[in-house]
Design a protein around this nucleic acid. Structure first.
Length: 509
RNA sequence: GCGGAAAUAGCUCAUCUGGUAGAGCGACAGCCUUCCAAGCUGUAGGUAGCGGGUUCGAGCCCCGUUUUCCGCUCCA
């Protein structure tokens, strides 16, 4: 099973390259790790996914508008969002078990152990003293508890100090002093603590002397938050309303793996929905349903989707769930739906000193809205579709065919025009049909090779329909329309072709 | 980042224990052909990931490096 799924992923990666979907970045220079380029077909599929998302979010919801904020933002944005601090994880490896840990987590776990000891003392004392037990007093007076509490505060103080001053050597010392051991190997044989900043930084200002460090955004959401009042006022939006944005984001992933699933440069499709405080759960549920409906509208099977509710919440959320998709390597996160509270807006109020309150003209109240976020990885969606679409079929005649059953409206090319033979005027007729279709659909014309070979080639690229011009076409202006998935053909008049293709290529059909 | 595996033509792979690289498929040009990758002819494509070392001689042995895949953490 493991080997099969690995093989499958390898085949998909090879197929994606062979048919112009995904190339590795800078391949001729040995590639750049965890960065990929989209080829001629990849860019079409990606554009189509993005457009369908945009249409579903912005066009179909009158209370959602779009935005395209810049990748580069004022450095304080990332201070406010918590990315500068929260995503600066100090990491440490145990040399014996080869396991990697976050140094702060190791220390927190250690503190938790001490807290458990304190709790034990308290429950013991509670039993002994019964109703007369005063926990507050006990905490202040019991020698062992006092000592442990003091220890905790000392550890916290030293750890925070070392982190803030960037003294990672001291973090290691602290771990060694406390004799924190690896839960796997049980040893205290640690590497140095290293800091991995998840944000890419660059210099702004052409003179290096007065250049300042700025970051490439690690998420698109902050561009929405800092603009939310601009949009609200100029679009005259009333709560609840949403702002949608697609765009690149950058993360210096420690471990980037699994093809385009986790990349250093990736594209997000996010919508931040601003609501009245207290209504966030209602809208959280609403968007959970809406987003799942969107996924299922693509025709991907519901068995390949599942929910994953977060138990441990990020610093900005009060509820969070993921839509996971069954990739060849298991169920993995595809989209997140988070109730982000007023954390981000409040943080920007605090750091910018600007009032970002929403004034409700009806109730005459002024308040900071709560935010419900839907955030999907475009590249992951691309990969989900690609993985689902890739099929190796065993045909009745014993032959095999490789087909990409991409949802027809998303396919890079919608239709291929194929003259049955390259003579008898079929080419000319084919060109004529092709020219009439290409204004309406992404369309390809092919006359080389046997017709069967061309069908298979289009199956492999994922083109959902082939129009074949044969001798009958010259007599009665009809062509055959071949379906990629069923390989069935129907004869149809050239006149009806555009209307017919429109019908089968739309999501509403 | 740590550990394991891999890297030869566009793709899939050969090259037996070191003796200056081959096949199939694909691509391209042409011929043949009335519907599902399998007819015929010809052409182009590789300084074996890259850089060192050992050797008379390295695709093969050694070291380094890059990339990919797998396990450990996080996330869209």
């Amino acid at each position: 099973m493991q080997n099969n799924s690995e093989d499958l992923l390898k085949k998909i990666i090879a197929h994606a390259k062979e048919y112009g979907y995904i190339f590795q970045s800078s391949e001729i220079y040995d590639g750049l790790s965890a960065v990929y380029d989209y080829g001629q077909n990849g860019v079409e599929l990606k554009n189509n996914i993005r457009n369908y998302w945009w249409q579903s979010m912005v066009q179909y919801h009158e209370n959602i508008v779009g935005l395209d904020a810049a990748i580069l933002m004022h450095p304080t944005v990332w201070k406010a969002s918590g990315h500068v601090d929260a995503f600066n994880d100090p990491l440490i490896d145990n040399k014996d078990s080869k396991k990697r840990y976050r140094a702060d987590v190791l220390i927190e776990d250690y503190i938790q152990k001490i807290e458990k000891k304190i709790d034990k003392e308290i429950t013991k004392a509670q039993k002994r003293f019964g109703d007369a037990f005063d926990e507050k007093q006990f905490r202040q007076t019991h020698p062992r508890v006092v000592e442990n509490l003091k220890k905790i505060s000392e550890i916290n103080k030293r750890f925070n100090q070392s982190l803030e001053s960037g003294d990672l050597a001291d973090v290691k010392k602290l771990i060694e002093t406390l004799n924190i051991v690896c839960p796997v190997s049980g040893t205290c044989n640690w590497t140095d603590v290293r800091q991995f900043n998840l944000m890419f930084s660059t210099q702004m200002g052409s003179l290096s002397s007065d250049a300042q460090t700025i970051y490439m955004r690690p998420e698109t959401a902050q561009g929405i938050f800092v603009n939310y009042l601009n949009v609200q006022k100029t679009a005259r939006m009333k709560l609840p309303f949403g702002i949608a944005q697609t765009g690149k984001a950058f993360r210096n992933e420690i471990v980037a793996r699994q093809f385009i699933f986790r990349m250093k440069e990736f594209e997000q499709m996010e919508m931040q929905f601003f609501v009245k405080p207290g209504q966030e759960m209602e809208w959280y549920d609403y968007w959970k349903n809406e987003r799942m409906r969107w996924h299922l509208s693509l025709g991907l099977p519901s068995e390949k989707y599942r929910w994953h509710n977060h138990e441990k919440l990020a610093h900005y959320a009060n509820a969070a769930t993921d839509i996971e998709f069954l990739f060849p390597f298991g169920f993995k996160e595809l989209e997140g739906i988070h109730s982000r509270t007023d954390f981000d807006l409040n943080a920007h109020i605090k750091h910018s000193g600007k009032k970002l309150h929403y004034f409700d003209p009806e109730t005459k109240e002024s308040f900071v809205p709560y935010v419900v976020e839907t955030s999907i990885g475009l590249d992951r969606m691309f990969m989900a579709i690609l993985c689902h679409a890739y099929k190796e079929e065993q045909l009745k005649d014993g032959s095999t065919r490789t087909v990409l059953s991409i949802p027809a409206p998303l396919a890079p090319y919608k239709v291929a025009v194929l003259p049955l033979l390259k003579k008898d005027g079929l080419s000319e007729k084919g060109r004529e049909v092709f020219n009439s279709l290409k204004k309406h659909f992404m369309c390809q014309y092919e006359e080389k090779d046997a017709i069967g070979r061309r069908y298979r080639r289009n199956d492999a690229v994922g083109t959902p329909y082939c129009v074949t011009i044969d001798h009958q076409t010259l007599e009665d202006e009809t062509v055959t329309l071949r379906d990629r998935d069923t390989m069935a053909q129907e004869r149809i008049s050239i006149q009806e072709l555009i209307a017919k293709l429109r019908e089968v290529l739309s999501f509403s059909s």
